Simulated scan of single mutants.
Amino acid sequence: MRVCHYLEFADRLARSGIGTSVDHQRAALAETSIEVTRSPWRGGGPRGGLRAPAGARSPLADADVVHLNVIGPASLAVALAARARSIPLVLHAHVTREDFRDSFRGSNVLAGPLGAYLKRFYSLADLVLCPSEYTRETLRSYPIDAPIRPITNGIDIDSLDGYREFRASTRAEYDLDGLVVFAVGNVFERKGLSTFGRLARETEYEFAWFGPYDSGPQASATVRKWTSDPPANLTFTGWVDDKRAAFGAGDVYLFPTKVENQGIAVLEAMATGKPCVLRDLPVFREYFEDGVDCLLCETHDEFRDALDRLADDPDLRERLGENARETAREHSLDRVAEGLDAAYRDVIAGDPSPERH
């Protein structure tokens, strides 16, 4: 089986959750017999693909399945070309109208038109893949005229090996001491930035957010406010070259995100045995259990109480962390490979019904 596995804007998305998910997919597929190509075009690009005489051959490179991970103009062109040539088309729904909001300046204004575009774009697919049942129900509400199948984003557990070795050096670099409450990923209000900042301001724990943030005109007012004048106990590190530095330095993973399709960084925190404090969202209820492998909170006071409980109870931190490790193992790359293989075979067979998964 030959699959075209395309990521538009690959360089720009290298530091994003989409980029990480695609890395996981490709690492998983590398352990299968599936042949993977990354460019959808003959000759490596759209110009080379279009040089052939009209009707002589498809501008698309030969593939049994086309799998697209982004919603941009090149991806749309590839999707339309695949449809025209009756090549089975899999679209991965990493983006929804809901999780686009509160991402950057103007994102809330654009969320409405984006929703209309996503409805049409995802409906081109023979099969839509998404990270969770929650995301599937969100897409169904648009509605999307295509079968939708959840598949975990997965976690590359091996990529976290040796994270403990980064603890001392990372803490020294960012002047962190004592119990460190931390987050990993891009700094957005949607990720719970204001809650994170207020909790830092109200407590005496060290807080650190490991991840890039916008500082130019594209930055939202909320991001500029917190990153330009944070509380004394809150550090925004910017991009870190090795994610193991973050998971080595931190003690309690705090993720008060407002909307999430799954949360790869949560799974990474769990894989390193960190107790996780999460907002009580349907997507987290789908994968995690309150009081077993995490603490789920609804209100600001509940978040603060959860941090205090964990600070005062090392045994609770250890128990939640050990259970979290087991949860993370359920999202191995083997599971990603199995899900992708089944999806490709089903669309080739012309039966991509979600009930087959």
Score class of each variant (00 low, 15 high):
111 A>N: 13
276 C>T: 11
262 Q>A: 04
137 E>G: 03
193 L>W: 14
244 R>E: 08
5 H>V: 14
291 G>W: 15
215 S>W: 09
27 A>Y: 00
258 K>W: 00
78 V>G: 09
251 D>L: 08
62 D>H: 11
217 P>L: 10
88 P>W: 13
41 W>P: 02
235 T>A: 05
73 P>H: 10
188 F>D: 04
299 T>E: 11
298 E>P: 09
326 E>W: 02
323 N>C: 05
62 D>E: 15
162 G>E: 13
54 A>S: 15
306 A>N: 13
220 S>E: 09
172 A>I: 09
31 E>K: 02
206 E>C: 12
162 G>Q: 12
198 R>H: 12
83 R>L: 14
109 V>N: 04
58 S>E: 03
313 D>T: 14
353 S>Y: 01
222 T>F: 01
282 P>D: 08
345 R>T: 07
48 G>A: 12
177 D>T: 06
137 E>F: 01
48 G>K: 04
292 V>C: 02
345 R>I: 00
47 R>Q: 11
268 E>K: 03
221 A>I: 07
45 G>M: 04
277 V>T: 15
62 D>M: 03
344 Y>K: 07
107 S>A: 15
125 A>S: 04
1 M>G: 02
88 P>G: 07
287 Y>V: 14
102 D>F: 15
214 D>Y: 03
56 A>E: 15
291 G>R: 13
51 R>A: 15
72 G>D: 15
143 P>T: 05
327 T>S: 12
330 E>A: 14
195 T>I: 02
250 G>E: 07
111 A>S: 15
238 G>Q: 05
175 D>F: 00
144 I>L: 13
233 N>C: 05
350 G>W: 02
232 A>Y: 02
320 L>P: 01
103 S>W: 08
104 F>P: 06
201 R>S: 14
107 S>N: 09
54 A>Q: 14
136 R>L: 12
90 V>H: 12
60 L>H: 02
236 F>D: 05
186 N>K: 14
5 H>G: 06
92 H>W: 05
16 S>Q: 03
288 F>G: 01
202 E>S: 13
161 D>E: 11
105 R>A: 08
215 S>Y: 10
333 L>E: 08
116 A>D: 05
107 S>I: 14
334 D>C: 00
186 N>F: 12
338 E>G: 08
134 Y>A: 11
149 R>G: 06
97 R>G: 06
169 S>Y: 08
306 A>K: 15
109 V>D: 14
306 A>L: 11
273 G>Q: 03
4 C>D: 10
140 R>Q: 10
203 T>C: 03
211 G>M: 12
321 G>L: 14
280 D>M: 07
260 E>I: 04
63 A>S: 11
174 Y>G: 01
189 E>T: 06
294 C>R: 03
100 F>R: 14
19 G>K: 01
352 P>V: 02
106 G>N: 11
164 R>W: 08
305 D>S: 15
239 W>N: 05
45 G>I: 04
288 F>A: 04
109 V>G: 04
324 A>M: 11
143 P>N: 06
288 F>I: 04
187 V>K: 01
43 G>E: 10
122 Y>R: 13
107 S>H: 14
108 N>T: 08
239 W>P: 00
320 L>K: 13
